[in-house]
Design a protein around this nucleic acid. Structure first.
Lengths: 158, 158
DNA sequence: TATTGTTATACTCTATAACTATA
DNA sequence: TATAGTTATAGAGTATAACAATA
């Protein structure tokens, strides 16, 4: 029987494995796994505000800003004033950023391949669906029906 | 149809949601989500070497050492020389660490509840199984059959 | 020779709080 | 009043490489 703790640890192991493989694959080009996610998010829908960018990449506006400062210095992204909202700034890939992203996408392909190779197409669907549901379940808004805590930590099996 | 990229982003979203909720739940007690994982790993099987501890928590010996230094300062863990291997050190929870862990476990229970609440028992099993398989697939050893990269980044849907 | 752990070092990511400017 | 972003600040986690001690 699978506990919440089991899910949590399995999730952690999978994510960190992915993150390490990605960092290693992108390091030669001076880009981190998280920066790749930012680039990929911009490539899918650019001219995003920083806030929207943060939301789409499951990050934080303040974190994203720190990343953008670094990546702007590398010439990968550029920020402009928003056309209709003078408070906001839009973020987009520069031509160099687009080229870099295409190369990084290729560099990451073996990783995505390895990940998908161990899953049937319907299993991949299932995994994505369950992960999405878990994410939604973890959102701070979705408060659970009050539940008495009768559980205890797992035994010490020294 | 679910791509490797979809899985990667879903994994990221779920893990970061879990991590943030955990950090928030434990912050009042001055412990981070990652430190909680370390404590939980020790509680399950203490007197681990630092290396084994790092392996079980999907981390790195050097990272674990940095964490242990911080946590030793808080009096949560203690390190002793290994009984049979003079190179190694064993790590264990102190009495204070055990108490802290029990409280943290309770503090994290609502999060685990919320996560498990959105899944049927068989779905939880499936999720854990698929995540484990993905993790194994991502291990650097498991090299994929050579695959030609015919893919291209997702279209810009501005 | 290989392995465990330490040390030094550096950098990214993370996030809060106070602030400015604009909606 | 609420929102977008900036700034200052702080800290955690991450990891590599050189090293010492031991297996």
């Amino acid at each position: 029987m699978t506990s919440g703790s089991d899910i949590a640890m399995a999730l952690r192991a999978a994510y960190l494995a992915l993150h390490r493989r990605s960092d290693a694959a992108f390091a030669a080009r001076g880009v981190t796994a998280d920066q790749f996610v930012l680039l990929a998010t911009l490539a899918r829908g650019h001219a995003l505000t920083q806030r929207e960018l943060a939301r789409r990449m499951s990050s934080d506006p303040s974190t994203v800003r720190a990343m953008l400062v670094l990546m702007e210095r590398q010439g990968l992204v550029e920020r402009d004033v928003h056309p209709t909202d003078a408070r906001a700034r839009t973020v987009a890939l520069t031509p160099k950023g687009k080229r870099a992203f295409r190369q990084l996408w290729a560099a990451g392909e073996p990783i995505r391949q390895q990940m998908i190779a161990v899953l049937d197409p319907d299993e991949a669907d299932t995994l994505a669906r369950l992960l999405t549901r878990v994410t939604a379940g973890l959102s701070p808004e979705s408060v659970p029906a009050d539940s008495l805590d009768l559980s205890h930590p797992p035994e010490d099996n020294q």
